[in-house]
Computed example of a mutant assay.
Amino acid sequence: MNEQTTKNSPRKLAWFKRWARSFFPRPSSSNEVAEMLRNAQSASIIDPGVLHIMEGALKVSDLQAREIMIPRSQMVGLEHDMTLDEILDIVIKSQHSRFPVVGESSDDIAGILLAKELLLLLSKGKETFDLSSLLRPATIIPESKRLDVLLKEFREHRYHMAIVVDEYGGVSGLLTIEDILEEIVGEIEDETDEEEKDPIQKVSDNCYSVDAITDIEIFNEYFDVGLSDDECDTVGGLVIQAFGRLPEINEQIDIFGFNIMVTAADRRKIITVNVRKNPL
């Protein structure tokens, strides 16, 4: 090969690459990448399961914490002054592995308790119980945190839960590494997961058990009404607003054509209510 041919080779290669790109342009957005992946699946280059995971990974890169977090109203947490028996009762019923522990106020997160830390106490005896000594530091993130960045931090720092706060520092909800992974691969279930029940259950004629965290939109659709969700998002919030305080169990109130009685609650929130339609 002579010297002139050697000099021309890189130019020819560069020209060929430009020519090829004119027929096979590079993707300029995640939507175009997703379309290429779907075409690859249609051509049997990748299987549907792989396509699903790849599309999930692309979706995560565009999502923020606020979009998939477990909202504050649905968080299962502990209070700093609870007894060991009270804590064990919540741990057993919820079957979660990590719990945020609330301090003096609902926005004061004292730390995270790992359920496995309680196992050693059961052998030592309740006399040695000191909740504060078992807590791990809570990771606090803003609502705007991107999920792909958070997943990387979860892996690098080896923590599995983050508390999400709003612009004022108030707790909005929480996120776990499992929540992000489920966005990528789909629902992850284990042997302890129970089948989700409907948030509104008919108990008898004109009597319905309603979870307090039921969205007002779902309530409206079920009962064919048009309650406003401008100030409250859930049925529980609507009931608390109507009472002007946190009601106690068995307290009832007539609002918007319904009789609503609180059937389960704790010191911070309503859990379930019974709903009856008032006669016209």
Rank of each mutant, 00 (worst) to 15 (best):
E3S: 08
Q4P: 00
T6P: 00
S9P: 09
A14R: 15
A14M: 13
R18I: 11
A20K: 05
S28F: 07
S28A: 11
S29N: 00
S29K: 00
A34L: 04
A40W: 12
A40K: 08
Q41T: 11
A43T: 05
D47E: 14
M54I: 08
E55H: 06
E55F: 02
E55A: 06
G56S: 09
L58H: 08
K59V: 11
D62L: 09
I68P: 05
M69N: 02
I70C: 06
S73K: 15
G77C: 13
E79A: 14
M82N: 04
I87V: 08
V91T: 03
I92D: 14
K93Y: 12
S97E: 02
R98F: 06
F99M: 00
V101Q: 03
S105L: 03
D107Y: 01
G111R: 11
A115S: 13
K116Q: 15
L119W: 09
L120W: 12
L122C: 12
E127V: 10
T128M: 12
D130F: 04
S132R: 15
S133V: 02
L135M: 00
L135C: 02
P137F: 03
P137L: 08
T139Q: 08
I141R: 06
P142N: 04
E143D: 02
R146V: 09
L150E: 03
E153W: 03
F154E: 06
E156I: 13
H160C: 06
I163W: 03
G169W: 01
G169L: 05
G170I: 01
G170M: 01
V171T: 09
V171C: 01
L174T: 13
D179A: 03
I184K: 03
E187C: 06
E191C: 01
K197P: 00
K197E: 14
V203M: 10
S209Y: 09
A212P: 03
I213R: 14
I218K: 13
N220R: 10
D224M: 10
V225F: 04
S228T: 06
S228D: 14
D233L: 09
G237Q: 04
Q241A: 12
Q241C: 06
F243I: 02
G244V: 05
E251L: 11
I253Q: 07
D254R: 13
G257T: 07
T263C: 13
T263I: 12
T272C: 02
R276M: 09
